[in-house]
Design a protein around this nucleic acid. Structure first.
Lengths: 104, 104
DNA sequence: GTCGTTGTTCGATGGTTGTCGTAGTTCGAT
DNA sequence: ATCGAACTACGACAACCATCGAACAACGAC
């Protein structure tokens, strides 16, 4: 598929806590979420600082997207990813804060 | 081994967020944590309401124990398990609250 | 002692998952 | 129109994991 493919993101009511926890449990994905944690932060696929290949990175982005953790904004050939902080905070108040408070 | 085996529990400084998230991501274990969530609640191995065999339950209890989520108190042949809520709240403030806030 | 209860350990098995390389697709720029 | 950049899809592979059955160990009660 193309870089401009349109994705279906889960609605807020479709986000399940098990999927969110599983998505955050992987070290690579947790690191990606930490990089996204700053207010208003958007990171493109190639902008993440991770030690995996691009195909593996795509896999992790899909896991995060399908779990409802991130959302993407398309601009040209680049997809900018950001945290769905509002949705997650409403569903699981404190979860993201607690996860991000962990020492690295 | 015996039912009265002594276990080594991870110290608070040894609890890693990845292990906690992975432990909570499993539906069976998440359900066990929910059953433990009441203040002062202690549940023995045979006291959990789960749809798995005893050997599988032992496996889940070990995962939760090694991740630092639960701690056990031996009394006769029974081991009473409880949440390490204080330790977890200090390390990851809000995490447990957010997880337990999820609709079932 | 002999049971029953409680809980653990040990394979075995089937499913999931993290990883990669390769190939392919869309877009923008030259 | 050709090239490169940004991603994605597919197939493969190894590692992990949830599950079970069967056997085992410790304790309490009879």
């Amino acid at each position: 598929m193309a870089a401009t493919q349109q994705y279906v993101y889960p609605g807020q009511d479709e986000i399940r806590i098990e999927a969110v926890l599983a998505a955050l449990a992987d070290p690579v994905r947790l690191d990606m979420v930490r990089q996204l944690a700053g207010p208003g932060t958007e990171i493109s696929c190639s902008g993440f600082d991770v030690a995996v290949t691009k195909s593996t990175l795509t896999h992790h982005l899909r896991t995060l997207r399908e779990a409802g953790v991130i959302i993407g904004r398309q601009q040209g050939t680049t997809r900018y990813n950001s945290l769905r902080r509002n949705d997650l905070d409403e569903l699981f108040p404190g979860l993201l804060q607690g996860v991000l408070a962990a020492r690295r």
